[in-house]
């Protein structure tokens, strides 16, 4: 077990160094365009991922969205969010957001117990809304470069759109994740795979509309995804400290609600 971890860590260090050197001398080719020196292999991987998505992930995500009760979907997302809290807390700390890191840990403790292993987000009702920070965002916060510049754009096998910054982020988050370390120590790695699978289905089910729309209304889907991914990550890095779902105080007296009926 330990040996495997060490070798994993060493491999990680190599990728980290490689990515770091790539991050060094980057400049965007054209104003507003994403730097993509590996476009040919990227397009190739994009096509493979697209095929896998069309035949496997997307149908599963559609079935999940349409056939599972909303309550189950919400509970599943809560559990997945809860398992992600420790990594978020570490990243918030690394970004210098001590208060939010403490809130995230409090959320994790409350929801893991009172929230029955995270199924119910009771911490939200205590005024502790969910936040999410990954190490790609942490690098983005640290870096002097604008958050649109994450180094060369990369399409990862299975994982999809990324860049040097975010690929390093995925790796670091994997290495520091207590859930992963715990499941490996206890030899229950199937839990890790189950979580990754659920994560993929849950995330895909929430991007169905947006990606369908993007594909249908773009003339070069690869470029549209590349641009959208880069902008979205930049927005996440810029929005540090803004809580995504409660950034608008919905119960403020001045709200103008429009579509009322359900």
């Amino acid at each position: 077990m330990f040996v495997r971890w060490v070798s994993g860590a060493r491999r990680g260090a190599v990728v980290l160094a490689l990515a770091g050197s790539l991050l060094g001398g980057c400049a965007t080719a054209e104003e507003g365009e994403v730097w993509d020196p590996l476009e040919t292999p990227n397009r190739f991987l994009f096509a493979i991922n697209k095929t896998l998505d069309t035949f496997i992930l997307r149908p599963v995500a559609v079935a999940y969205r349409d056939l599972t009760p909303n309550g189950v979907q919400r509970g599943t997302r809560n559990v997945l969010n809860n398992l992600g809290e420790p990594v978020t807390a570490v990243n918030e700390l690394a970004q210098g957001e001590g208060t939010r890191a403490a809130q995230t840990i409090a959320r994790f403790l409350i929801n893991s117990t009172l929230g029955l292993l995270g199924i119910f987000d009771v911490a939200k009702d205590f005024g502790l809304p969910h936040t999410k920070e990954d190490f790609g965002q942490t690098i983005g916060v640290w870096a002097k470069a604008p958050p649109e510049d994450g180094g060369p754009y990369l399409v990862l096998p299975l994982a999809g759109p990324s860049n040097a910054r975010d690929a390093v982020g995925i790796l670091v988050d994997y290495l520091i994740d207590p859930f992963r370390i715990g499941t490996e120590q206890l030899d229950v790695e199937w839990l890790l795979y189950a979580r990754s699978g659920m994560d993929a289905v849950d995330a895909r089910s929430r991007t169905l509309q947006a990606l369908d729309d993007l594909e249908k209304n773009s003339v070069d889907y690869y470029s549209a995804v590349r641009s959208a991914y880069t902008q979205r990550r930049a927005a996440q890095i810029r929005q540090r400290g803004v809580v995504s779902t409660s950034s608008l105080p919905l119960d403020a007296p001045g709200r103008a609600e429009l579509g009322l009926a359900r």
């Binding site: 507003g32 365009e33 994403v34 773009s218 070069d220 690869y222 470029s223 902008q231 979205r232 927005a235």
Partner: peptide, 17 residues
């Protein structure tokens, strides 16, 4: 939408085409 500008995305899309 969620940080993604329709105009910027469309521009990249058209530019590539």
């Amino acid at each position: 939408i969620e940080g993604v500008s329709m105009a910027i995305t469309r521009r990249s899309d058209f530019n590539a085409y």
